[in-house]
Structures are given as structure tokens and as C-alpha cells.
């Protein structure tokens, strides 16, 4: 499974990006990522979420996952991130910082 996250925006406007290939990760980490993608129902999420009606300086995410011949990209901004997707995003941000 290939996962690519690009996080932009926020007050700082910094770009935080990471690309992971679960085949090259330790088995336990790969398993966790697969689990998070599944429990987010990632391939059933809409490609785009509605804009926040108000507010500013939220993080903006573009997340792409390729798995079993399927590829899907989701564009979403805080605070509209679905609760089921948040653990995956948080964990990817940690990878990006490494």
C-alpha cells in the first residue's frame, strides 16, 4: 500500500509531506496503517469535502492511498476532517516529522 500526505495551510503556511510504502515498513507499523485506512473507510470517502463556512488558518490535507489496484485521493480541511480519518492523518504527520 502506498500512502501520500500533503498538509499545507495553517497560520505558518508550511508544507508537511510524506510518502510511505507499507512494504518497506516494519510489519507492525504496516499493519496499523492498513487498519487505519480500513477503519476510515477511505475508499468510500468523498474526494472533496465542503469548505469550512467560517474561520481561518486551518490545516488543509490532500491524502492519496493506493491499495490492491485502487487509488483514491481525498481533499479535506480542518475542522471538516471525519473523526474516522483523524487517527490516520495524525499518525502520518508524525511520520512526516521524522
Amino acid at each position: 500500500m502506498l500512502i501520500k500526505l500533503e498538509r499545507t495551510g495553517g497560520f505558518a503556511g508550511l508544507r508537511t509531506a510524506v510518502t510511505l510504502d507499507t512494504d518497506t515498513l516494519p510489519a507492525e507499523e504496516a499493519r496499523k496503517l492498513h487498519e487505519m485506512v480500513d477503519s476510515a473507510g477511505f475508499f468510500n470517502l468523498p474526494a472533496k469535502f465542503p469548505l469550512p463556512a467560517r474561520g481561518a488558518d486551518y490545516f488543509v490535507y490532500r491524502l492519496t492511498v493506493e491499495k490492491d489496484g485502487r487509488k483514491h485521493t481525498v481533499d479535506v480541511s480542518d475542522p471538516a476532517v471525519p473523526a474516522t480519518l483523524r487517527p490516520l492523518l495524525q499518525s502520518l504527520v508524525v511520520y512526516a516529522r521524522k
Partner: peptide, 9 residues
């Protein structure tokens, strides 16, 4: 958390 924001309120 590396951010500050205004949430509309």
C-alpha cells in the same frame, strides 16, 4: 500542535 486558528467565533 503547530498552529493557531480562528474558528469563526
Amino acid at each position: 500542535y503547530n498552529n493557531a486558528f480562528f474558528n469563526g467565533t
